[in-house]
Design a protein around this nucleic acid. Sequence first.
DNA 1: CCAGGTATCTTGCATTGCATGGAACCAGGT
DNA 2: ACCTGGTTCCATGCAATGCAAGATACCTGG
Lengths: 124, 124
Amino acid sequence: MEPGDSTKQARAAAQLRKGVLEYCVLALMRDRPRYGVELLHALEESGALATSQGTVYPLLSRLRRDDLVTTSWQESASGPPRRYYALTDSGRAALDEFTRVWPGFRNAVDAFLTTPHPPTGEIV
Amino acid sequence: MEPGDSTKQARAAAQLRKGVLEYCVLALMRDRPRYGVELLHALEESGALATSQGTVYPLLSRLRRDDLVTTSWQESASGPPRRYYALTDSGRAALDEFTRVWPGFRNAVDAFLTTPHPPTGEIV
DNA sequence: CCAGGTATCTTGCATTGCATGGAACCAGGT
DNA sequence: ACCTGGTTCCATGCAATGCAAGATACCTGG
């Protein structure tokens, strides 16, 4: 999916990311701290959630503003210092909450897409 | 989930709906035309995608503006006339497109939530 | 005639993904 | 010393979307 793409497929995918990206980023921080470009690459490799710096950095700013993550600078051997993002207790709670809500949501969408909606209405 | 609720759970669910609601509404019209309140009730019964009139009617206006649906007035035996919404060819194409994109997206999110992200990095 | 249920729609706001652009740090070649 | 390219961070402005709140209108029954 190239930048600037505005096909129907791209639009659907872009809208899908809304609200999910935040929690996928939190999930990536679950087992260890991460820095911005690292998160970007991980999302890229997932395929369906590939995005850009212009999306990730404002998102990370919001997470920090809402106290879901804390940050710390760390030297790098191959470039400028990196800002690492780590989950706070609130961040972990938000991730757990999403993990609870997600299956119900996913199944509801699956049902809408696969269940027939008969012309006669459901069991009157 | 009550209106005006602003718990973390409600916020996560609200963001999840973004971009998905449009296609669930299209899916509801797949087998027969529907009118606004009917759609509202169907979403309500699904649980995870319950929403309000203030969301559905602007959405339906957008669908009509983009030629994804056509509308026709029809008398009702128990109230004011109803505006029925039916899929156009473009609407059906958009729904099919989403149906193709959705599984990949769903599986990607599942993977982020359930796959461990080891501290040592993946297979160096 | 008026109260309540059904049905439609508008307005304004907050949130969010994104394109674009900019800045700083480091290593290597010339 | 200079400059090119890779890496890393961030800000600004726009468009799309869900939502609360409010407005309008039709119909039936008391």
